[in-house]
């Protein structure tokens, strides 16, 4: 019974819900909260895996607990072991998880550090934009997040974009850095590394990345107009591909972002508290479902 319910929960969170939520305009209306929800769902999935594995190995050994225990059930014919919490298993799982995320983070950090050292050598600081200029015809704008962050603008981008468009692109990158968006991507990346085929991992990771782009777009809108930002996006997205072939990843993200900028009501505040509680509660759901002790 408990196992079946947990299995159902895993199926909903891991397979059904991601299909419904991907590209949802409701999540895109509040991108940061949307990204948080995806991460909460990933956490919730992992939390549910643990008791599911536990019950799968000894399905009938427990008294039902949690919400499952509230459901009327037949008195067992054989004596049951009392409901147990295996805290060591839990601690080990949490530690393992933390180690995985940290390892992915360290890898990304090392790559950033190397890249930064190279950038500092080959780029020239532009005082007007407080950005590093890379002397290359390929138009691109990107940032190196984290401590000692950098915003990089190529000569191609300086030539392609006008003053306001460039301001929009740079403002967008600054918001990535200020919002520490790379830290939000980290758990999603780590999750996808191990459960890459699961819809929750595959879609979730792409959606978190996209929602963070949208969050940076919104924040940049305090300094530039929608059309300035949108035209900068379009100019860069449709510029010729770099020499040497298949670099740069094709993505529908830009289209979604520009369409979103055309929609009314972007960037409003929602009932923040309720939302936050919901996001916080999601990872606890499986616990309440299967394990919470009865009063």
């Amino acid at each position: 019974m408990t196992l079946a319910l947990l299995g159902l929960y895993l199926a909903v969170v891991g397979f059904a819900l991601p299909r419904r939520l991907a590209g949802s305009p409701r999540l895109q209306a509040h991108p940061a909260a949307g990204a948080a929800l995806w991460l909460a769902l990933m956490a919730s999935f992992l939390v549910a895996l643990l008791p599911a594995a536990h019950h799968a190995t000894g399905p009938f050994a427990h008294e039902p607990a949690g919400l499952v225990g509230l459901i009327p059930h037949a008195e067992p014919a054989v004596p049951l072991a009392p409901h147990t919490h295996d805290w060591w298993l839990l601690t080990a799982a949490a530690a393992g998880l933390g180690a995985v995320v940290a390892a992915v983070g360290v890898r990304a950090g090392r790559m950033r550090r190397r890249h930064r050292a190279v950038l500092d050598l080959v780029t020239v600081r532009d005082r007007q934009w407080d950005a590093l200029v890379l002397e290359h015809a390929y138009p691109t704008v990107y940032c190196l997040p984290g401590r000692r962050s950098r915003v990089v603008v190529s000569r191609g981008a300086l030539d392609l974009l006008d003053e306001r468009q460039l301001a929009a692109a740079v403002a967008h990158e600054r918001e990535h850095i200020r919002g520490r968006h790379h830290l939000f991507r980290l758990p999603a990346d780590a999750f996808a590394l191990f459960l890459g085929r699961l819809p929750l991992a595959r879609r979730g990771r792409a959606e978190v990345a996209l929602l963070l782009e949208m969050a940076a777009d919104d924040a940049a809108l305090t300094r530039v107009s929608r059309s300035e930002l949108a035209s900068a996006l379009c100019a860069l997205a449709t510029s010729p591909a770099p020499p040497g072939g298949a670099l740069g990843v094709a993505s529908t993200g830009v289209l979604a972002r520009v369409r979103r900028l055309a929609r009314p009501g972007v960037g409003g505040r929602r009932r923040q508290l309720a939302w936050r509680m919901g996001v916080l509660a999601t990872p606890l759901l499986p616990y309440l479902l299967a394990c919470a002790p009865h009063p």
């Binding site: 950033r112 890249h115 670099l247």
Partner: peptide, 20 residues
């Protein structure tokens, strides 16, 4: 190196926009 950043390594750098 910067442009070749595949999705696997995308966590390290954040690009303003992808090509389409």
């Amino acid at each position: 190196q910067a442009l070749e950043t595949t999705p696997d390594r995308a966590g390290a750098l954040l690009h303003f926009v992808d090509r389409m």
